[in-house]
């Protein structure tokens, strides 16, 4: 399965259009477009890209788009994906910035009701993500630790990701050691 650069541009253009109120809808919409509709990537691959993007500096949506674009069509794919991504906001911002000088800023509070839709979509995407990512005790424990650290400490997200990644890899390492040891005895 291959995707044309024009289609790549169009998909990211569409994705960008529905990113309102933060990039949270990125995951469900990319899974929709690249996995369910077109079968170009597996859900797991998209989640890998998304998870990696969270650990690197910069805007998450940009990095996820680069991973997907580069994976499917190399450097050209990455550039085209980004172009698709930045075109809608570029013009939207220019238009909105000009309009806002003329209308009542009160209108913003109306548009903010979209936050509720964002909650539904992110919630739905979490349920799917959990189905793919949380399949054994190890991942469930890490999942719970992430939530606890987030809610009960003031640590920055990057620090939490870093600590838990190191911890996770350490546990995996120990588990493998034990497994090999047991096998050696039998």
């Amino acid at each position: 399965m291959k995707i044309s650069l024009a289609e790549m541009f169009w998909i990211f253009f569409k994705i960008s259009l529905v990113l309102i109120g933060g990039g949270y809808v990125l995951l469900p919409i990319s899974i929709d477009e690249f996995s369910k509709k077109r079968n170009l990537l597996t859900q797991e691959e998209i989640i890998n890209f998304y998870a990696l993007s969270q650990c690197l500096p910069g805007v998450i949506v940009v990095k996820t788009a680069v991973f997907i674009g580069y994976h499917l069509r190399g450097k050209g794919g990455a550039v085209i994906a980004l172009l698709g991504l930045i075109t809608p906001p570029f013009f939207a911002i220019l238009i909105v910035a000009n309009l806002l000088n003329k209308v009542n800023p009160e209108i913003l509070s109306y548009i903010n009701t979209i936050t509720i839709a964002v909650i539904v979509l992110v919630g739905a995407s979490f349920i799917e993500l959990a189905g793919v990512c949380l399949r054994n005790t190890f991942t469930i424990i890490l999942f719970i630790l992430t939530i606890l650290l987030f809610i009960f400490t003031n640590l920055q997200p990057v620090i939490i990701i870093f600590i838990l990644t190191v911890l996770g890899l350490f546990i995996k390492f120990i588990l493998r050691k034990i497994k090999n040891h047991m096998r050696g005895k039998v």
Partner: peptide
Amino acid sequence: KDFLETLRAIASGLLFVVVLQMINQE
């Protein structure tokens, strides 16, 4: 493989927190 499995579990946790925070805020 271990690295990505770990990362995915953490990503689910982060997303869950986002949902919690948004529901709470609204």
